[in-house]
């Protein structure tokens, strides 16, 4: 794009799809860290499976971004060869892995958000976005159900699990607003018919799902947080992001062009 010119509709669409893909890719990376670290082996497998679903969504979307932005770049170019300021994911997904309760709080919010997001993309003007959403919508229902079951178990479990699950909800709260910010690429995407609803219009349904689970789990929704994350959609990230990218990208960058 040359200075001063408006971005073309295709470039605007590419920026939007990139943000959706980056959320999925970064959260896939974080969830993959649970392998050998989850409280039980079934959970190692479960979180790796959720990670794999998200990775698959990201791969298909990155391939589409390379067509929309006219660069012809492939999935590895986006995942492995972009620097921190070029990533468009929200801060929620890049935060370091905390205890298991934090992961379930994060997954509950993120899956609730994705559930509404992909529903709004089912009739997308872009056939690939619509196709990915059709598959992803089914997968996310399982992610949401998985998070819901754990939040119920931990919230309505022992005093200790209840305390930690409540603390996890408080931890996640400052990162929630950013999911529902109407960033410029999303506004362009709605105008282009790429997605039916703005992020802010997904909030009521997504938050309603979270609130229902929290209530059933004998937990309480946190008070409005005193600060909130922002900047991810513009490539401004928090401290953990650089470390995450270093781990994600170092093999591809150490051995460029390697295949196996």
């Amino acid at each position: 794009m040359t200075a001063g010119s408006a971005p073309s509709p295709e470039a605007g669409s590419a920026a939007y799809v990139l943000a959706v893909a980056d959320d999925a890719m970064v959260y896939a990376q974080r969830l993959g860290e649970w392998l050998t670290n989850a409280p039980q082996i079934e959970e190692d497998m479960a979180l790796a499976n959720v990670s794999l679903d998200l990775l698959g969504q990201a791969r298909a979307l990155y391939a589409r971004v390379g067509e929309l932005d006219g660069s012809g770049r492939g999935e590895d170019d986006y995942a492995m060869f972009r620097d921190e300021r070029q990533w468009r994911n929200v801060h929620l997904v890049e935060q370091e892995r905390g205890d298991f309760a934090r992961e379930m709080a994060r997954m509950l919010w993120f899956a609730s958000y994705q559930h509404e997001l992909y529903a709004a993309q089912l009739a997308s003007s872009d056939p690939v976005v619509a196709g990915v959403a059709g598959k992803a919508a089914k997968e996310v229902r399982y992610h949401l159900d998985h998070a819901r079951h754990w939040v119920l178990r931990l919230g309505d479990g022992t005093d200790e699990s209840h305390r930690r699950m409540q603390a996890a909800l408080e931890w996640a709260a400052p990162y929630v607003d950013e999911l529902f910010d109407d960033h410029a690429a999303a506004v362009t995407a709605v105008e282009a018919g790429l997605v039916a609803r703005l992020p802010s219009e997904l909030r009521e349904a997504a938050q309603g799902r979270v609130e229902a689970v929290v209530s059933e789990a004998t937990l309480t929704m946190p008070d409005p947080p005193t600060w909130r994350s922002r900047g991810g959609r513009d490539g401004i990230h928090s401290r953990p992001m650089g470390y995450l990218l270093a781990e994600l990208q170092h093999i591809s960058r150490s051995h460029p062009g390697a295949t196996w």
């Binding site: 079934e42 497998m45 479960a46 979180l47 499976n49 794999l52 399982y142 998985h146």
Partner: peptide, 13 residues
């Protein structure tokens, strides 16, 4: 059900 997610993405345990 022991786990929603089994040995592969398509299976539960």
């Amino acid at each position: 059900e022991i786990s929603h997610f089994g040995s592969t993405a398509c299976k539960a345990l």
